[in-house]
Simulated assay, not measured.
Amino acid sequence: MDIISLPVEYDKKKIESRYRLVVIAAQRARELSLGSIPKIQTKAKKVTTTALLEAISGNIEFITGQDAIIAKERAEKINYKKLIEEKRKPIEDLSELEKDLKVYLHEKGATEKALEELFAESEESAEKEEE
């Protein structure tokens, strides 16, 4: 496994300070932990290491300054719950699913009844032997 050496070498034309590098990597690590696909292939198992490697390699696009402030304000105005609800579509054709579930539940019920009968018979025979 690759080990990130300290101090980390990065392009100072794109990322002007270590603080900016940490912020970029932290935001990318959050995205990766929520299921985003990594932009580079690495042997690293931790999302923080992968995020830092992506930031160093320059595979992440980011904005700074006034553009970042405007983007943050726009993001705060978005109602994410409403967007998620709009994206969800009701399942229209439940008939196949219902049929499968009925068969499963029917089989499950039959199995449980058979087990109950089997144990009831074994309990009755055990009681007779005790007498």
Rank of each mutant, 00 (worst) to 15 (best):
I3S: 01
P7Y: 04
V8N: 00
E9P: 00
D11E: 06
D11M: 06
K14S: 11
R18D: 09
R18I: 09
Y19W: 14
Y19L: 06
V23F: 11
I24P: 01
A25F: 00
A25M: 00
A25N: 03
E31C: 13
S33Y: 01
S36G: 01
S36F: 12
I37H: 04
I37C: 03
Q41P: 06
K45R: 12
K46N: 09
T48Y: 05
T49W: 00
T49N: 02
T50R: 01
L53G: 02
E54T: 13
S57W: 00
G58T: 03
F62W: 02
D67C: 10
D67F: 07
A68R: 03
I69H: 09
I69N: 15
I69P: 05
A71L: 09
A75K: 11
A75R: 14
I78K: 08
K82G: 10
I84H: 13
E85Q: 13
E86S: 03
E86F: 07
K89A: 12
I91P: 00
D93Q: 08
S95F: 08
L97P: 04
L97H: 04
K102G: 04
K102S: 12
K102V: 06
H106S: 13
H106V: 11
H106T: 14
G109D: 15
T111R: 13
E112D: 14
E112A: 11
L118H: 15
E123L: 15
E124K: 11
S125W: 10
A126C: 06
A126H: 12
A126E: 07
E127V: 04
K128C: 07
